[in-house]
């Protein structure tokens, strides 16, 4: 009997734990500087605009537009073998940061720069990009 192949995961740090806690509640949390208001992503301790360590966590609106993408056909990790081929999309958010997330329910052949998508959280508590309807 072989153990199930698990999704690769890294240990969150105190700087990043709130982001993962947000995902577990179904929210994509973005850091916003409490001093100057600049958004940043991925989570990190300091604002690169004003060097403040204080920040708030703001749920992303969900609006997203395609920046670029790739469709993976090669199994680089056994966990993802059953999902091949899968599309990973980088998308711009109106908040001013970019996200990377798998594409769900949209034909990758229809992807274009600027195409509107919807950022959400999937059943496993991970970011996902779906059609904007």
């Amino acid at each position: 009997m072989s153990a199930a192949i698990e999704r690769p995961r890294a240990e969150p740090s105190p700087d990043t734990q709130p982001y993962w806690d947000g995902l577990a509640r179904g929210e994509i949390l973005l850091q916003r500087c409490a001093e100057c208001g600049k958004f940043r992503h991925y989570p990190r301790p300091m604002c690169d605009g004003c060097f403040s360590f204080t920040h708030t966590w703001v749920a992303a609106s969900g609006a997203a537009t395609v920046h670029s993408w790739t469709v993976t056909h090669h199994p680089f990790h056994p966990f993802f073998r059953a999902k091949l081929p899968y599309a990973l999309v980088t998308a711009d958010l109106p908040e001013g940061v970019r996200v990377l997330a798998p594409l769900d329910g949209v034909d990758p052949a229809t992807l274009r720069i600027g195409l509107k998508l919807r950022l959400g959280v999937d059943a496993e508590g991970l970011p996902v990009l779906r059609g904007a309807e």
């Binding site: 995961r9 920046h67 790739t70 993976t72 999902k83 980088t90 990377l100």
Partner: peptide, 27 residues
């Protein structure tokens, strides 16, 4: 950073992480 935020989504290898650069150049 990639290991924490992108690898769990399936962004594992350099080929996958660099491919969007090439795709955007093409577009």
């Amino acid at each position: 950073v990639v290991g924490e935020f992108e690898m769990p989504l399936g962004g594992i290898a350099p080929a996958q992480l660099y491919a969007p650069m090439a795709r955007r150049h093409m577009e």
